Simulated assay, not measured.
Amino acid sequence: MAAPSAPELPSCAICFEDSSHPGFSLADLPCCGSHTSSTTQFCVACIKMICAHGDLNVGKCPRCRKFIGMSASGTIELRSETGTCEMCRQKHIIVGHRKCAACLFGSDPKNRHRYECDRCHRFQRIPHPMYR
């Protein structure tokens, strides 16, 4: 007869740390609900890192891909400031530098896309969402 197994400790789906790690706390994501209602959970440290790597401390939720950010007090907030993007002139969520996510991605020099014109066969770089 098998011995009963110990209950699993909640762990982060990104770094795999569990609640036995000192300073570990699960993040309550404002877009996806409480960490207690989901089987996929993330720690506050990983969410901070995701936001820190984004422009203007805005990152994407690893579960639903909505824009989130860390407030000055350390709480996770849903970022939904909409406005007119400086580049494509359409109303979107502004991520940084007054641009939407697609334009910010395309305006980064390492992400610019090269296209060959089918008439003149010259190449051009397209820095805005027209690349889609």
Rank of each mutant, 00 (worst) to 15 (best):
S34G: 05
S107V: 08
C88A: 12
N57F: 01
E77T: 08
I47K: 10
G74L: 01
Q124I: 15
P30L: 03
A72M: 08
C61A: 03
C120P: 07
F16Y: 06
P22T: 02
K48P: 06
C103E: 08
K66G: 05
A101K: 00
D28T: 02
S25A: 11
V58C: 00
S73N: 15
R114P: 03
G83P: 04
R79L: 02
F42T: 01
S71T: 10
A3F: 10
G106W: 11
G69R: 02
S71E: 04
F105V: 11
C103H: 12
T75C: 08
C32E: 09
Y115F: 15
N57G: 03
H97L: 05
D18C: 00
D108Q: 07
D118W: 08
C88K: 12
A2G: 09
C12P: 01
S80V: 11
I14K: 06
C103L: 11
D55R: 10
R119T: 14
T36D: 06
G59K: 03
A45Q: 04
R114D: 04
S71P: 05
L56F: 06
A13D: 01
E8Y: 10
P4G: 07
M130C: 13
G83A: 06
S25Y: 05
H121V: 12
A2C: 07
F42M: 03
C46L: 01
I94G: 06
S37Q: 08
F67H: 11
C43H: 00
F123T: 08
C85G: 14
D118K: 14
A2M: 09
A27I: 00
L78W: 08
A27E: 03
Q41L: 01
F16E: 15
T40C: 07
